[in-house]
Design a protein around this nucleic acid. Structure first.
Lengths: 122, 122
DNA sequence: CCAATGTCAGAATAACTGATATGG
DNA sequence: CCCATATCAGTTCTTCTGACATTG
């Protein structure tokens, strides 16, 4: 996955931020940190990168002036789509030896494991 | 796995070297590098550690004086057994939500993937 | 003369910690 | 006054590269 993302000068945390913004809408850096698992301190540089490339916009949040509102741009949305294609290709290659039924089974088993180890909130 | 190994002041590469020596017998550092995937340059420090703790012995190879023969000590074998118990426990916890049949199925699927991506020799 | 081996020094990266200024 | 947010500086750890001396 890392190698494929690198072909478009992207890294996993770039993807994580773009995907999070696409799924949940504009968010503060703190919120993005919670969703993606990237440290707040490391998010600064990531957002700098994405801003410099015109993929997101960083603007002060009017409602809470401590926060920056990070918003996906149209170009950011297009870039995310390109990355999605890249990752889908990589996954297809990775799972090549598995039949569709096998793939479904693998996902079922991994989902069970993840669910079991996801602490209930609180 | 890393956390569990750390409880006995060990790391994954310590385990990799001990396990390789147990399975394939004494070996050169170059050979250990090939088997474990650890770089030759990084193996130096690893063997230093294991030697300082009396888990392996480093001795010049009589047949080829460029090489060091790395040999597992009795204490090294005992330490490996302790680590094996640790890792078996961790695996059991990790796979807790899966039935025995599910675990066998997961291993089958992962084995297929690994085999498919293992280049044929040459 | 070329290749393999062990060793050392250091780059590049990712994950993480702590301090600080500003605003709620 | 305490908490949250964004930012900056810097540590640790791992992976990886390059150079070198010794030996085959």
């Amino acid at each position: 996955m890392g190698e494929r993302l690198a072909t478009l000068d992207s890294r996993k945390w770039h993807y994580a931020v773009l995907a999070s913004l696409e799924e949940f809408g504009p968010d503060s850096q703190s919120g993005l940190s919670d969703r993606t698992g990237i440290y707040r301190s490391d998010l600064v540089a990531t957002i700098n990168d994405l801003t410099a490339r015109g993929l997101v916009v960083r603007a002060p949040d009017a409602a809470d002036r401590r926060r920056n509102a990070i918003t996906l741009t149209d170009e950011g949305r297009r870039h995310l789509k390109r990355l999605d294609v890249l990752l889908a290709d990589a996954e297809a290659e990775f799972l090549a030896p598995l039949s569709p039924a096998d793939r479904a089974e693998l996902i079922r088993l991994l989902t069970l494991i993840v669910a079991h180890h996801s602490k209930p909130p609180g």
